[in-house]
């Protein structure tokens, strides 16, 4: 079982290496240089290919600690996916809706979602944090975070 996981990873890496080598061969050549732009990437691609082959045939036993790292309950994984989903939504809406509103919503909702149930202090933190950061950046540092639909 253990070996096969490492082997799967090795196969995946070999695929990455081959793709990378393929892309390196597509690079246009430049006439006025000794070492062109494609040399180093090609070298890296082949090195990765060699290393993934070595990994494939490596029979070094995985330690108990290493095995444990991979054992993640399904629920937890879904939780993680959900958080990444929320981050995606945040990024997508950041410039449309604006920093302040999105950040308040993000902190409040994610914190609640991860199991913090004190709504008042949650709300207080998310609002204060977002406003303080926004004002700090916009007025003190003159770095403009997206205002979005709020007229500040």
């Amino acid at each position: 079982m253990l070996k096969s996981v490492n082997r799967k990873v090795a196969l995946f890496l070999a695929a990455v290496a081959i793709l990378f080598i393929f892309l390196s061969f597509q690079l246009p050549s430049y006439p006025y240089t000794e070492v062109d732009a494609d040399i180093v990437p090609k070298g890296l691609g082949f090195l990765l290919l060699i290393c993934s082959i070595l990994l494939f045939f490596n029979n070094q036993e995985e330690t108990e600690a290493e095995r444990k790292k991979r054992e993640i309950p399904r629920d937890e994984l879904l939780m993680l996916l959900a958080v990444f989903g929320i981050i995606l939504v945040y990024i997508f809406l950041l410039e449309l809706i604006g920093f302040v509103i999105m950040t308040i919503l993000f902190i409040f909702f994610t914190t609640w979602f991860l199991g913090y149930k004190k709504l008042i202090s949650n709300l207080a933190v998310s609002v204060t944090f977002s406003l303080v950061i926004y004002l700090l950046f916009s007025y003190l540092l003159q770095i403009n975070l997206p205002a979005g639909i709020l007229p500040i």
Partner: peptide
């Protein structure tokens, strides 16, 4: 209540 407040804010600002 929170959601309502935010919604009102949004509409007013828009």
């Amino acid at each position: 209540f929170v959601i309502l407040t935010i919604l009102t804010l949004l509409i007013v600002s828009a």
